[in-house]
Design a protein around this nucleic acid. Structure first.
Lengths: 220, 220
DNA sequence: CTCGAAATGCGACTGAAGTCGCATTAAGAT
DNA sequence: ATCTTAATGCGACTTCAGTCGCATTTCGAG
């Protein structure tokens, strides 16, 4: 969940082939370096200054890349945010495996709670998500980010199905959504404080609903 | 849920006493008129242009109030949004009463779904909430807005407690949060599409959890 | 009705975001 | 090694958000 800057950088060299424009692309060493520097600078800036303090000029100054280049390649602050989000979308994410659905879900929601309330870790993903909600490119990147997370985490529900703990046909991603939605609702919609008890209860509710078959197509 | 401009205006004349600054306040007829015009113009602008298209200059032009006045009284776009939000926070809201918790919750979540997906009504509250998430004043207004809504809607759960449908001590606001969180999660966090079936299921899950006592202090 | 003060109107000024044309660098092909 | 050109560097220019000082209006009190 945490888009650690260092992690984000290491995988950049291998994902350059995304640029398929009509003129012969040239994603050589320099462009890759520029992109890495920009992503690192963006994350650092958004972490320090928060979203409203994020400026293209500041990213340009910190990364050593010229302002015009940033506007050309990313179009502005929104594009920078989207880039940073995309860089952290497909990062591996440790999944719990306690042998029981409730336990797994509790660990997942508690992890979300821990990350976002941590004064050290929280500001970065918080600012990233808040920022991404505005522009279309950011929203698209955000959708992709959460789709990837849902897909990954759905495994705990699928394992529960295999164990016979949940009815066959249960939609694992919906279980994850149900478990985490109350947390994100408080964090990003109502702005209410988030505590560990709420996280645990959200997991319990999702597990209860899943066991009751509410996420299986014929019943739900 | 819908901050209808016309509704928002009618109640403005009666809520001027909020200004308690040290210099003798003067919330007379002109200030009230200015405020009403500004709120109306803000809602109209944010509905037409969306959030990113919302400009202080545009609100000034449409309302006929000078730009400097807007900056002085509201501090900028964020303050305008907060003002508009506050104006719609304590509006009366029709509560369903089907005689059964599930039915009430389904009507509530379906109403949320209907409002936000309606191409006519949806843009205004959507833009309002999106905009409010950014600034501190907006976030505060948003918290107050949802707190009021939760408190109002909690009545359907309290009635269910009186009927003996739910265990005593059930936190009604938590039931409402649980029922609506998945909708707002999709609308404002992941950006996933929202359909009637999801709304209905969210209500069912909340009702199930409430019946199971997950929102009563001793169990939840 | 008159007066003091608050609120608004007004326009110029400041500063930063974003754009544009051109010069320079370096990637990739031969 | 050389050449073509994509990608970046560079700085000036435009535009607009936001501020400031002062003139004008109007609310509320006596």
């Amino acid at each position: 969940m945490v888009p650690s800057p260092s992690q984000a950088l290491t995988r950049l060299e291998s994902t350059l082939n995304e640029e398929n424009r009509t003129p012969t692309p040239r994603p050589g060493g320099r462009s890759a370096r520029v992109r890495a520097d920009v992503v690192a600078a963006t994350l650092a800036e958004v972490t320090e200054k928060g979203y409203d303090g994020l400026t293209v000029d500041a990213v340009a100054a910190r990364s050593g890349v010229h302002k015009a280049t940033l506007y050309r390649r990313w179009g502005g602050v929104d594009g920078l945010i989207a880039e940073a989000l995309t860089s952290s979308a497909d990062q591996p994410w440790p999944l719990p495996d306690t042998g029981e659905l409730v336990g797994d879900l509790r660990l997942i929601t508690h992890e979300v709670f821990a990350v976002f309330t941590d004064p050290e870790l929280g500001p970065t993903p918080t600012a990233l998500i808040t920022a991404a909600q505005r522009s279309d490119v950011g929203a698209a990147a955000l959708r992709a980010f959460f789709a990837a997370r849902h897909r990954q985490a759905a495994e705990v529900a699928e394992r529960a199905v295999e164990r016979g703990e949940l009815p066959a046909g249960t939609d694992g991603t919906e279980v994850i959504r149900a478990a985490t939605a109350p947390l994100y609702y408080r964090l990003f919609v109502t702005g209410e404080p988030l505590d560990a008890r709420t996280a645990e209860r959200a997991a319990d509710i999702a597990a209860l609903a899943a066991r009751s078959g509410l996420f299986a197509p014929e019943t739900g």
